[in-house]
Amino acid sequence: MRKFWCLFFMFWPVLAIWLCWVSPANGWWFPSIAPWELGQQIDDLFYLLLIITTVVFIGTQFALGYVLWKGSDVKPGRAWFSHGSHNLEVIWTILPAIILLFISLYQMDVLARIRVMSKFPEQASRDPIAEVTARQFEWRIRYPAPGKKLLAQPQPDDLYTVNDLHVPVGQPVMIRLRSDDVQHSFGLPHLRLMQDAVPGLVIPVWFRSNAVGKFEIVCKELCGWGHYKMQGELTVELEEDYEAYLKALQEKMNDDGYPADAENAVAQSDEE
C-alpha cells in the first residue's frame, strides 16, 4: 500500500509520454491538417508548447515519484526539517520566466499576422467578404450583392443567410465579426482559427483555405443554454461556385413568388 501512491503518480507521466508519442500520428490532436500556412504555424506553436509542458510534466512527476518511493520506507528517528533552498527557488523562478518570455516572443509573429489588421493581406482587408453576427444561438451572415462592396451600414441589396458561410478557395478573405447579445467566439477548428465576438465591437477576422470543402463553424465561448446549437458551416469552394452561390442567394432574396410554382399556378387559376 505504501508503494501504491508512488506507482499511481508514476502511471500518469508514463501514460502522458505514450499519448504524446502516438497522438500526432493518429490525428488525435487536431481534426485534420490545417489547409493554410498560418494554421500550420499555429499547429507548430501548439507542438512547441506540448513539448515544453510534456518535459516539465514528466520531470515533476518523476521527482514526485522518487520522493514518494524514498519516503515509503519509514526510517526510525526524527524527521529532518528543511527550510528550503534559496538557490533552488531562484532557479525555478527564473527558468520558467525565461521559457515564458521565449514563448511570447517566438509566437509574436504568427499572432500579429492573425490579429493585427495592418498585417492582414491587403486583398482581404480591403474588401471584407461578409458580416457574421453571432447571436443566441446562431450565426447570421450578411453578404454584399454580387459585384458590390460590403459596407458597415446594411444596404438594400445585401444578401442574408444563416449558419452558412461560403468563401472562395485559395483567397485571403476577411469577415466582420459582431455579436448581437452576449460574448460568443467564432471558431473554425479545422483552420485553427478562433476569435471572440464581443458585443459592441466589429472585429475583423481573416483566413484562407487552400482546400475545397465544408468545415464546421463552432461557438467556442459558452454563451448560454443553447451554446451547442451554434453550429455553422463554412463552405470553401471554387471562385465560380462561390459566385454562383451568391447569384442563387440573390435570386432567393428577391423572390416575389411570381410566377408561383407550376403546381400552385394551376391551383390559382382554378380559383379565379
Binding site: Y258, A260, A267, Q268, D270
Partner: peptide
C-alpha cells in the same frame, strides 16, 4: 391544400 397558399397574381414592381 395548395388552394390556400398565398401567391401574388402580379410580379413585384421595381421599388
Amino acid at each position: 391544400n395548395p388552394d390556400v397558399e398565398v401567391w401574388p397574381k402580379t410580379p413585384r414592381p421595381e421599388p
